[in-house]
Write a protein that binds this DNA or RNA. Structure first.
Lengths: 245, 245
DNA sequence: CAAAGATGTGTAATTTTTACACAAAAAAGA
DNA sequence: TCTTTTTTGTGTAAAAATTACACATCTTTG
């Protein structure tokens, strides 16, 4: 894409054979790594697996895979997710690429990090693989590769996104109580929130549907259950203008 | 990174030779493309160059280059920037990767988009290359590759970032008037803002240093000049908690 | 010296955010 | 069945932030 000699007349150095050009490019192995978040016992967790590299024996790594020839990055990430959790229709978004040449002991590998959010209870499958497990985000360390850095980045990304978009609902069941919702926000943001103000805030958004059901099997007074009104949200997404830093 | 057979005992399929593993990965040409933004005549502009591919003859493309062996993506983007603008210390940040297998006519190429902001007047160099020029963002179209999509994405990214971080100052001279600052925000966000409220907002942030100088050579009453107090900003960066969508 | 054009400033109304306490419901255990 | 415990559910007042809005001043230009 760099033009080497700008002083020649343009048509004299137009490249005719794009294929040949690309064939001459250096090539790099590219992978995707997924930070798959779930929420359980009022804690944010991430799905990890024991590394299959002797070099990282005993260390956890994120779920990832190579990107196939002619595969979209999004596709590759989705493939990893589906193979591992058996789930469709899962929230998934690209966070960013990591390219430290020393990040993989086997040589240069560029990886693109994805963040995924799912309801842990819908993920019955394949967890019997006992090297695969949900790990609390707060006690993670000693991961393989640069995966700790990737998790940290994805976590920051999530903290930001959850405040601006209704992502959190992906981590809960379809029906949830306001308490569960608040616990989710408190756990992810690492703060405690005033219950009345929290409820008032969501009430004023008018995006929760009261389905006239109550929590079941809770060891205390049951709360009302709600669904998130995705349809209304999609219609009313407002653009926000406000300078604040 | 995928473990093939979870039912064998773990140590039996630990991979000893990480190098061999990586050598077996499919490899992809990777490039970086920079959306380099500048501000001039109250318009947001982006630096583009005529494509050197016959396939895209006459179309503009972003500045980009291949990523070298063992080069960080950030490095590669910075290299492109420096080669083309001659500038150091320029704001540069990764936006995201684009991986459509059909995005390059020469075959599969993954590119990582970067967004850069600079003061157009500091960029005297190399612009004499007459295929290189600043193009108003609002009238861009028919770009080579998926570069229009990349510019759009970078522009949205910028619109968001400028509201939450003091990025805009990278597009202005070190000394600027409040009017210039407001013009910048209006141009990038595509809205018009109330002058008194805009000034009140920045006054309340207390991050502008009044340097007791006035604009020179303006065809009207000159305004006061300010600098942005980066030092104070760095110290006081507040974490923002607020749910809003 | 008049006209044109941009700078610079304050206040009142509205909206949003924050802090804070108590009664009612259900479950658990005596 | 009654008492205790725990959690739900709700309103108001103060403070802070945002919005809408108009006029006098300064500088250049002709």
């Amino acid at each position: 894409m760099i033009k080497k000699n700008p002083y020649e007349k343009p048509h004299e150095h137009l490249i005719k054979d794009a294929k040949k050009l690309v064939q001459a490019y250096p090539k790099v192995p590219v992978t995707v790594d997924c930070a798959i978040f779930g929420f359980e016992e009022n804690k944010l967790k991430v799905l990890v697996i024991k590394s299959d590299l002797e070099y990282y024996q005993g260390h956890y790594s994120l779920l990832g895979d190579i990107v196939k020839d002619n595969e979209e990055l999004d596709q590759a990430a989705y493939r990893v997710l589906k193979e591992r959790t058996g789930m469709n229709d899962v929230f998934l978004d690209q966070v960013r690429a990591f390219s430290n040449p020393a990040r993989h002991p086997g040589g240069r590998v560029i990886t693109v990090a994805y963040c995924s959010l799912l309801n842990i209870n819908h993920h019955e499958l394949k967890i019997h693989d006992n090297d695969l497990n949900w790990h609390s985000i707060s006690t993670l360390k000693d991961m393989a590769f640069d995966h700790k850095e990737i998790v940290d980045e994805c976590y920051r990304w999530l903290q930001k996104m959850i405040q601006e978009h209704p992502l959190g609902f992906n981590l809960l069941a379809e029906k949830f109580s306001l308490r569960e919702l608040q616990n989710l926000y408190e756990a992810i943001l690492g703060v405690s929130l005033d219950r009345r103000n929290f409820r008032k805030k969501f009430a004023s958004m008018d995006l929760l549907i009261d389905i006239n059901e109550m929590e079941q099997d809770v060891p205390h007074r049951p709360g009302k259950l709600y669904k998130f009104n995705f349809e209304k949200y999609e219609k009313s997404k407002r653009k926000w203008i406000g300078i604040d830093f």
